[in-house]
């Protein structure tokens, strides 16, 4: 039997976390805005401890996101936070900023380190470099092609995680861009909700049918993709290549949607692991997802099969 790849899903609340475990998630990514970016919800340290308890009872892992770009004033919060996470039994943390790596090695060495520099994790050699610094996993950039990912696998000395479903971040600024625009327009901005639940989006003149969600939080302005990645149909290519973890991004989606998607990927992974030789994609798995998919957001292969130039 093949090595069982991990099915990792983000969760925004304890309720969602429980529902996703029921749906077949092997690991959950959670956290709070102060330390992690673009999370579907905020977990306090106490809730994280609770999440670990729920998850570990069912042999499911909990990872916490610490992938912010930190400024000086936030640095002193990191050591205590990682100590709390380790004490709670968290399995690993995601990081992009080297200051997190330093803090974990010094204060909470039992935490696994997953290197996630978003769009900047683009080759095996740099992933191995972070491996030599203590990372056990690389979260690969969503802009890589299928060929790049598969050829990377034999050269990687650490685990690889690939996002297989959901939206991606395409722009992150420390500036408050929506607020600035509204102030420019003369609209009131004080106390106005510009967060991810407001449903704000951008449309570019020549791409009228593409809607790019935009929101602000304490980490600045985030612009998200207009489509949702869905590689379910070709998941076996990634499984054949030996990718260790598949991520479903649940940001800006309902629990119901995330449960349906998780179940579909669960079926595909289980079918493959049981009998890789005779694995066959089942169109009905994808049909389940299509039924809950926002008709204004295309399900796409993202950059898996797209030629990019420069």
């Amino acid at each position: 039997m093949r090595k069982q790849p991990e099915l990792l899903v983000t969760a925004g609340s304890l309720e969602e976390l429980t529902a996703l475990i029921d749906a077949g998630a092997d690991a959950l990514l959670i956290g709070e805005e102060k330390f992690g970016m673009r999370l579907p919800g905020n977990f306090t340290p106490a809730q994280i401890a609770e999440a670990v308890k729920i998850a570990h009872d069912r042999k499911v892992k909990i990872y916490v996101s610490l992938n912010n770009l930190f400024h000086n004033e936030q640095l002193e919060l990191i050591p205590d936070y990682v100590k709390q996470l380790a004490a709670a039994g968290v399995d690993g943390v995601e990081f992009g900023d080297p200051s997190v790596l330093t803090a974990v090695k010094e204060h909470a060495p039992q935490l696994k380190l997953h290197w996630n520099a978003e769009m900047l994790s683009t080759n095996y050699a740099t992933a191995n470099y972070w491996g030599s610094k203590g990372a056990s996993r690389v979260v690969l950039a969503r802009e890589l092609s299928m060929d790049e990912i598969t050829e990377m696998m034999p050269k990687l000395e650490i685990e690889a995680q690939v996002q297989v479903h959901g939206m991606t971040n395409i722009y992150h600024s420390k500036r408050r861009l929506v607020q600035s625009y509204m102030a420019h327009q003369g609209r009131p901005v004080q106390g106005v909700d510009l967060g991810k639940d407001r449903g704000l989006f951008l449309v570019e003149a020549e791409r009228k049918d593409e809607k790019y969600p935009i929101y602000e939080d304490s980490n600045g302005t985030h612009i998200m993709s207009s489509d949702d990645i869905c590689i379910l149909e070709d998941l076996h290519v990634l499984m054949n290549a030996g990718v260790d973890s598949f991520k479903i991004e649940g940001l800006m989606k309902s629990t119901h949607y995330n449960v349906v998607v998780t179940k579909a990927y669960r079926k595909a992974i289980d079918a493959y692991v049981q009998d890789p030789e005779n694995y066959q994609f089942d169109e009905s798995w994808l049909e389940e997802i299509r039924r809950v998919q926002d008709p204004e957001r295309e399900l796409s292969f993202g950059f898996f099969y797209k030629e990019q130039v420069y």
Binding site: V178, Y181, R198, G199, L200, F201, L202, V203, E204, A205, K211, Y212, I214
Partner: peptide, 8 residues
């Protein structure tokens, strides 16, 4: 570039 801002 220039963009239009909407609310869903």
């Amino acid at each position: 570039w220039k963009y239009d801002l909407f609310e869903d």
